[in-house]
């Protein structure tokens, strides 16, 4: 947050200039103008608004934004400005928003002017690894070529390394990937995502891969408050609404569900909401003699949520 607060640059403006604005001083660059001019603040605050929680992720993206602005300033003054390496690794528990963030990050990096195209190519092991000798390299290269200029997102990247089979072609795909990550740093941002422990195994087996990735970002689990917030957002996008009782029921539901096994953060919430919608539909259908208005069709009631198995277990 603080890294890019416009207030900082304003104080420097006041310190360095009295009568003129900073823009007019020769040999200086107005960081604030670069920052607001590129619409970066709009992009970042949009991210803050739409993604709930995820503080480490947001901090890192703000840092990257700051770096890109400074790079641009350096270039204006004729200083050396190498574009930074932005390959990333997203690790975290199921449902912590790795895929969601990866899909958004192309938009953010494109808005920041780091990548040329606003597109994400999302692949898994199947898209990279071939079935017989000599099949893997062209397949991996094809995917890399398609992703050029944008973001290549490799979901469940740990599947690329199969320690139980030493002749596995995943290794070959990884080697090509590493080579391109190094050589085409300006053309491509590679994001690997996966569960923490399994990704650690992958990195341990490939120290070169780990060191080529500049940003290792850990996605924390959501707090109950954040999950409730997420639930409300999801309900809103589905054009439903929770009434007051349903809200507190949802809160209780989240607390119960978090203590149960196989809890997968936002994904569990999404599934729960899908089931709540089912129950609401059957409730409305049971009383189908009555006329229904838009409000009734939109409202999820506490009883829809409390009928969940989670409360009885």
């Amino acid at each position: 947050m603080t890294a890019l607060a416009p207030a900082d640059t304003k104080t420097t403006t006041e310190l360095t200039t009295t009568a003129t604005t900073i823009r007019d001083v020769p040999g200086t660059v107005d960081l604030d103008a670069l920052y607001t001019g590129a619409g970066i603040e709009a992009i970042l605050s949009g991210m803050d608004r739409e993604l709930i929680g995820l503080v480490p992720v947001k901090t890192r993206i703000r840092d990257i934004a700051a770096l890109l602005v400074v790079e641009r300033a350096r270039r204006t003054l004729g200083l050396q400005a190498d574009p930074p390496s932005l390959h990333m690794s997203f690790t975290g528990n199921p449902g912590t928003g790795k895929t969601t963030v990866a899909r958004r990050i192309a938009g953010i990096l494109h808005g920041l002017g780091y990548i040329r195209r606003n597109h994400v190519v999302s692949v898994t092991r199947d898209d990279l690894v071939g079935q017989y000798i000599g099949h893997t390299a062209p397949k991996t290269k094809d995917v890399l070529k398609k992703a050029m200029g944008g973001v290549l997102f490799i979901d469940e990247a740990y599947y690329l390394y199969r320690p139980e089979n030493e002749r596995d072609y995943g290794q070959e795909a990884l080697e090509i990937l590493m080579q391109v990550m190094e050589e085409n740093r300006d053309d491509l941002v590679v994001i690997l995502a996966g569960y923490r422990d399994r990704m650690d195994t992958l990195y341990k087996s490939n120290p070169g891969l780990s060191s080529r990735i500049a940003h290792h970002i850990e996605f924390p689990d959501y707090s109950p408050d954040e999950l409730l917030h997420i639930a409300e957002k999801m309900v809103e996008t589905m054009q439903y609404r929770l009434d007051e009782d349903a809200r507190s029921a949802m809160r209780e539901y989240i607390e119960h569900r978090m203590r149960q096994p196989r809890f997968s953060n936002a994904r569990s919430i999404r599934n729960a909401l899908d089931r709540v919608r089912l129950r609401q539909a059957s409730r409305l259908f049971a009383a189908r003699g009555d006329a229904v208005d838009a409000i009734t069709l939109q409202t999820l009631r506490a009883e829809d949520i409390r009928a969940s198995r989670v409360f009885t277990q």
């Binding site: 040329r116 195209r117 597109h119 290269k141 094809d142 890399l144 070529k145 398609k146 050029m148 200029g149 944008g150 391109v180 085409n184 053309d187 491509l188």
Partner: peptide, 14 residues
Amino acid sequence: PMFDLADAAGVMME
């Protein structure tokens, strides 16, 4: 032939 490319960098690599 290179299908579904978005950016020239892929062609330049080849």
